[in-house]
Nucleic acid binder design. Structure first.
Lengths: 208, 208
DNA sequence: TCGCTACTGTACCGCAAGTGCAGTTTCAAG
DNA sequence: CTTGAAACTGCACTTGCGGTACAGTAGCGA
């Protein structure tokens, strides 16, 4: 059938190789020639799959968004199984995420979208649009969890829940940057745990 | 005297131009030829000042660190004048920062260090070392303010203050990334205000 | 055996980084 | 007024990368 054609396999290997390289050293520092050498095809072969480097970026982003969002859903699902309480669910999910981050290798850590974000004005409109979609998806995801929490536990501080939802994604993005700057992966897990502390303080009753 | 030599002025113009370009479109997308065209010197002139692009990066980072840390100190100083209470000082400082971020233009927003952080393995050891220094300086800065707060107001949650200090810098870094991805500057100010909310909840007494 | 998919091979262009070096202007100290 | 260092210019050249163009071909399923 068409679903597992040979071309798809090569394309996937290119995307996988590119993702590793991009997370390790950035998009513009990743050369096409380096990718084809690792995958074992020629330059012509590369341009058979992608019109140009920008289209590679778009495909990488598309792929990243898909896996990232399904990972997020999986964690939410797992948390749902582990507790009935909306606050506990959110806290469990953040703990799961922190544990995931502690186990990831330095070279593979980072966000494909964020690595492209800092090269703003050289990326295409389509890439920019998909980046925006991703942030909005994160916002929706955390917002819906926060809504469930706020319904049962009134927040202790007057904050906009969309902004708190953004913070959930933002703290992680910031933690990645700090981890890269410090060359210390541990800060990622740590930062998520501090975010958890905020959620606890914001909603959890009976904390003095 | 040696302090305001002509060479220093040209070098400074190069660094200033480079910083604007890098914040707008990233380091690797910023070409030397574009810089010299704007500054009005030749390629040879550029290489008289910097051995290569990496040395430019190092000088930019050095310059950025200096101005960033002095800006931070200035805000802390201003907050010190406005209140005697350590918690209020920190909250005021964050508010000042949020206001600064709301007023900055999109092209000039961002952190020179962070824009280089995502190109990790192609930057020199020296640049990496200075990036580390910067994060540690941020940590020290916020940590000392947090220590003052914690002395008077015991924290409501068992968190490591170094990690909270990292979060102060991290939320900002994350907010920059989100702002770039969303093309919406407002999230930067918003995120700092949520961070403020955390500090309030963590330390402020009498909140229910 | 036909034709499509998935490539290879070759040749070439333009741009940016970087090298090397000789020559020139500017300006301040002797 | 001269001299010499600082701050460049000018030119020629190399390498690497992104990208174009296009002809040819191996494998494979209908």
């Amino acid at each position: 059938m068409g679903s597992l054609r040979k071309g798809e396999a090569t394309r996937e290997r290119l995307l996988e190789t590119a993702e590793r390289a991009v997370l390790d050293k950035g998009f513009s520092a990743t050369s096409i020639e380096e990718l084809i050498a690792e995958v074992g095809i020629t330059k012509s072969g590369f341009f058979y799959h992608f019109r140009d480097k920008n289209e590679l970026a778009l495909a990488m982003l598309e792929r990243y968004i898909e896996t990232d969002l399904s990972e997020l859903s999986a964690f939410a699902e797992r948390a749902k199984q582990l507790s009935d309480d909306p606050l506990q669910r959110l806290l469990i999910m953040l703990k799961l995420y922190a544990e995931l981050l502690d186990g990831v290798t330095p070279e593979r850590s980072g966000c494909v979208a964020a690595s492209m974000a800092y090269q703003e004005n050289q990326i295409s409109r389509q890439v920019a649009a998909r980046m925006r979609d991703l942030v909005l998806a994160w916002r929706r995801h955390f917002r819906s969890m926060l809504d469930d929490v706020a319904e049962r536990y009134p927040p202790r501080d007057a904050v906009d829940l969309d902004t708190v939802a953004d913070m959930c994604a933002g703290v992680l993005q910031g933690a990645v940057v700090l981890a890269k700057m410090l060359k210390d992966q541990r800060v990622m897990g740590q930062q998520v745990m501090v975010l958890r502390s905020y959620i606890k303080l914001l909603f959890q009753p009976g904390l003095n």
